[in-house]
Structure formats: C-alpha cells, structure tokens
Amino acid sequence: MKNIFFFIRRYFTFLSFLLLQVVAIILLTRSSTTHEVFFSDATSELTGNLNKRYSNLRSYFSLGETNRQLAEENTRLKNLLASNNIAPDSSRINYTDTTVRDSSGRYRKFTWLPARVIGNTVTLQTNFLTLERGSNQGVKKGMAVVGPQGIVGVVVEISPNISKVMSLLHRNSRVSAMLKKDNNAGSIEWDGNDPSILILRNVSKSAKVVKGDTVVTSTYSANFPSNLMVGTVSSIVADPSSNFYTLKIKTATNFFTVQYVYLVENTRYTEQVQLENTPMTNQ
C-alpha cells in the first residue's frame, strides 16, 4: 500500500497528464458519435452569442449577394404560385390549401422554418453551421437544412435558442441523393478536399452519367424532401474494382457565403426512423 502511494506521488505529473489525455479523447469520441456533449447547452449559448455578434458584423459585406439570392428565390417562388395558373375559359379560381390536414385526406409532410446563419466554418475537416433558432422555436434534431441554392446539412445539436448543423462539408455527413434524369440513387459524402466539391458514391455503372448532370436529393431520405438541388456532376470516375461510379459534384450551395437557410421538418421523421431501425424479428 505504501508503495502505491509512493508510486502515485512520484509519477503524479505523468498520471495527471494521462488523465487529461483520456478525458480529451473520451470527449472527442463522444462528441463525434452522438453530438451530446457534456456542457453543450451552456457553451453553445455562449459561443453562439459571440458568433452572432461576429456574423452581424460580417453580414454587411455580403448584403448585396444575399439580396440577389433572396430576390431570385422570390421570383422562383412567385412563379410557382397557384394564382399564376388561371384556366382561360373557366370562372373558377384556384385556391391553394394551407391547412395541416385537408378534407381530401392529404396530410402535410414537410414544414419549412426560416433561420439565420450565425456561425459557419469551411476550412476544417469537420465543419458545422450555427443557426439562430433553437428548440424553443421549433427546431428538432435530424431536421434537414436547405439554403436558397441547394441543400446545406442536417441539425445535430440543439439548445433553447441556438442550433448546430452538421454541414455537408463534414467527414461523417451522409445524404441520400440521385441523378435527376434517371433517378439512380447514391450517397453524398465529402472527402475533406475542396469545399465546393462533394462526392457521390454508389451510383450504378448502368446509369448514363455525363458531365453537367443535375443531382437532387433522393426519395429515400428520411429528413430531406425529395428533388431538392444538390449540385451538378463535374467529373466522373469509374471505379475498376466495383460496379459503381464515384462522381464529383459541384455544390449548388456556396458554403462560403451562406446567410439564410430553411429548416425542413418531416412530420413523420421519428416514425420512419424508428421503423427503419427496428431489428428484424422473423427473417
């Protein structure tokens, strides 16, 4: 017993070094798998607050660009308005139904919430965005994040007023996507190389891909609505050892300038994920 105490006393510095290392590594592994960090609530409020001030300052420099994007999106949306399509020979007017549940049995699957980006990195291997909207304002984990030009990422961590989004530019990010013209699905990843290029893996070699093809979110995704813009094919690599293409995708979203985004909630998200993750009982 005495020897143990002697040992501890003698190597106290080294032991405390080991202890701190272990704590750091545990924090790291916990945060990258579950994103539930110990003091995440308090600290993300604090860092979110600082980020907000900084982004307030920076937003002045990109006001012009943001305005252009919003105006462009407005025209696009206005063109989609039902009131633009009036049948020439009819006295009826089309109304769009905005209730949650309408009488013909359709239900609302996606709700869209606007949010402001107050923190954003593109230079690291694990990039996150911070949004000024949290659980008090209806944000939930797993919600999809979509920008004016294309998809941006997925919500991974929330506090009452701030939420944190795993950007598409994160080494662990996976989003299901497909080619617009023939619906061949694959998965969008990032190789950590260039913030404007994503990788689309597992596209079957039977797909007739050419440079410039549009890639949109697939119908298989639980959190993303289908047919949202992801990007365009910029180069095609046929993997000789497998039956799949690896495509490089030029992102539609410019991650350097993203200012406002929409959070998309799938009202049946939990139900779908729960069912998909249930282990098979009788196979």
Binding site: F17, Q21, L124
Partner: peptide, 15 residues
C-alpha cells in the same frame, strides 16, 4: 467549443 470538435485540440495542447 467554437469549432464543434470537443477534445480534438485539447489533447495536443496538453501533450
């Protein structure tokens, strides 16, 4: 806490 990678920079700093 700012970069969202808890522990990644703490470990080398302690070293």
């Amino acid at each position: 806490f700012f970069s969202g990678t808890t522990g990644l920079h703490a470990a080398p700093c302690v070293l």
